[in-house]
Design a binder for these strands. Structure first.
Lengths: 212, 212
DNA sequence: ACTTATTGATTGAATAACCATTCAATAGGC
DNA sequence: GCCTATTGAATGGTTATTCAATCAATAAGT
């Protein structure tokens, strides 16, 4: 590349780059204006690209929205699933890392929460969004149920309802997320995490005291 | 009213009637299409009224949406607040009735949930919606904290963190609502209520076992 | 090294449809 | 008769999608 061009970005980029630019712009726009206030024009402008390019890379606005949700979901899954695979961690530490990932600053930013809830707000009439989201929810829930079962077994008893607790946990994650979105000044990530861990302590303390 | 007109509805109605027709139509439309897919035309059609009449009774589409949320919130508050005022109920029963109200079929229908989450989805950039919702949330949360404190005092100890538990309870309500919206076949109102009551049992069982 | 051809990327105007708001005309009720 | 309620067309603006023209990058040819 000649010196006269060294300060200029190339005009073209690979499809993956463009798609990511558009997806990230979509996230920003949804966070700022919601889904109803997000137009293709605004996304293109936010990405510093043209309206036509958005349409070149995504078949339709709807396709772009769905891909944006998939991107969010994958980012989220990558994080909580990473530690869950480590063989050097105990079941208890694995469960804890899943909780931790749920409230990680990269996942649980106000911006991302706003986007998640924008999609939840559409979910009742958009089966696509429900299924994108539920895939990874189910995976996490099942994994948590196994871990909970494992922890209980280590404590010496098997009568815990691991699936029910995992389900409760899922609800707590979502509820905490919503509270963080609605009351950012009052409810922090640390508080949210603390809340969930307290619940788990309660669950396992109950079983411990049953043993004594 | 003359016999020839007895089978016909009057063409005019009082403002409160019209406003309620429009608000209820709005709820139906949002439940079916989300906020982004809800147009004034669709609302007017759903209400069996004209577009102009919608604009006559509400200053703007935005005003209609806000009033719709207020309507939902008031309906909800009336229900949980009713039993909370009864002097013949114990703190424990009052708390239980608040939980029960949260999952009452009139409040917690799929339709209403869809609308609630449509508004939550807009909440990050709509301060109006946040404040409508947070008013009654705060009232309920404070009331629950008092009741939890009262129950703990009856059990003979005061070291429970009532405010934290009330906050956790709020999160559980929201989380359960979202799970019901996302997984209607898997997660019923009864399961949701059970989940919350199990949590409360845990909380109070912990304190009971501390005493023994 | 330079030129030309080819293919994919990019642009933004055009298009058609949609939407919230306005408003003049008409209807209804007292 | 008067005032309010109701209607639906008009208005102006917005939006998603389409598409022709242009640009950019690479490969092939000289």
């Amino acid at each position: 590349m000649s010196p006269t061009k060294s300060s200029k970005k190339p005009r073209t980029a690979p499809p993956e780059v463009r798609r990511n630019q558009l997806i990230n712009a979509t996230i920003t726009c949804i966070a700022n204006k919601g889904i109803s206030g997000t137009t293709l024009s605004a996304i293109a402008k936010e990405a510093g690209l043209s309206l036509g390019l958005a349409n070149f890379h995504f078949k339709s606005k709807d396709a772009l929205l769905s891909e944006t949700l998939k991107h969010l979901a994958a980012e989220h899954r990558d994080l909580w699933q990473r530690d869950a695979k480590r063989e050097d961690l105990s079941d208890s530490d694995k469960l804890r890392s899943i909780v931790s990932a749920q409230f990680h600053s990269r996942i649980c930013s106000r911006k991302k929460l706003a986007v998640w809830f924008a999609f939840f707000g559409e979910a009742s009439h958009r089966k696509t969004y429900r299924s994108i989201s539920s895939q990874i929810d189910l995976e996490r829930q099942e994994l948590c149920a196994e871990l909970i079962q494992g922890i209980a077994a280590e404590d010496g008893h098997d009568e815990i309802d691991a699936e029910q607790i995992a389900l409760t946990l899922e609800g707590m994650f979502d509820g905490a997320w919503l509270n963080m979105l609605m009351y950012p000044a009052k409810f922090t990530r640390n508080q949210a995490e603390r809340q969930v861990l307290d619940y788990l302590d309660l669950v396992f303390a109950k079983n411990v005291s049953r043993r004594t």
